[in-house]
Design a binder for these strands. Sequence first.
DNA 1: TAGGCCATCTGGTCCT
DNA 2: AGGACCAGATGGCCTA
Length: 269
Amino acid sequence: MKSYDCDSSSESEDTSHAISRSMIQAPWMRGNVVGSNWGWQGGLPGSSSGPSSSTAALPDHQPPNYGTFSQEESQVPGRRTPLGAVGLGGFYFQGGQQNITTAPHGPPSDENIPDPACSGQNSRAESRGASSNANIKGKGRQGKSVRLNINARERRRMHDLNDALDELRSVIPYAHSPSVRKLSKIATLLLAKNYILMQANALEEMKRLIAYLQGTGGAAGSAIVAPPGFDLQGFPAAAKFLQQQQALQAENARHNDGNNEGGGSGSTM
DNA sequence: TAGGCCATCTGGTCCT
DNA sequence: AGGACCAGATGGCCTA
């Protein structure tokens, strides 16, 4: 006997997922990540080591169908990620309808709504019959709709988490190619951590270099200039730095001129 | 076929 | 009470 798992039949048929399955049919990255100089530090907690061992399968392989939600899912691209509500960005679009996350009781056609027609189609749900029974026997006196609401919330939460991971994948440098398998979750997190460390090191190195240049070229009185033919268009920070250097140079020149004039007049007097 | 990865359900805990 | 978060359990998919 299965309780209210019919919503979990969601997995049986899916319509859309963030990344299509075809995007990841190719073999796993094959060192694309590890090849970079900021690859893996330390091992994976709970797994053996690095991405080479984590032959990530895709999350997309099994189409999650969000129960009765699946139709909306296929039609509304931005269903997930209510993070914007907490100022964390992301997108959350409900086609002008109320926000699911903020209106837990009234999603227009959320998976929260038990679908009487979807029962008995999920092998997973069937396999979970024991736990469902336990739920019913134990504290599980929750109503069916309550349980479905909880399940739906948890599903959304995990989808939001996955969306955030996707965004993280999009900003960390690894081969973003359809022929390259998507990074696993753990690989994404570890890679991001290493990338941050690498950026921090690069920043420190840059600061030291700037300090060195200021200590040498500046002391000698020679302005730091960009090499001929060097286009600063793509380097706003460097352009700003050079601009500041030139302004500082001009200021020093004025100051020196003032000192010379004043000193000369004073000495003569 | 084993192992890795994942989605989902579920119950517990904590917070508002 | 309701929601968020977490961890365990379960089963599917994929690759070596």
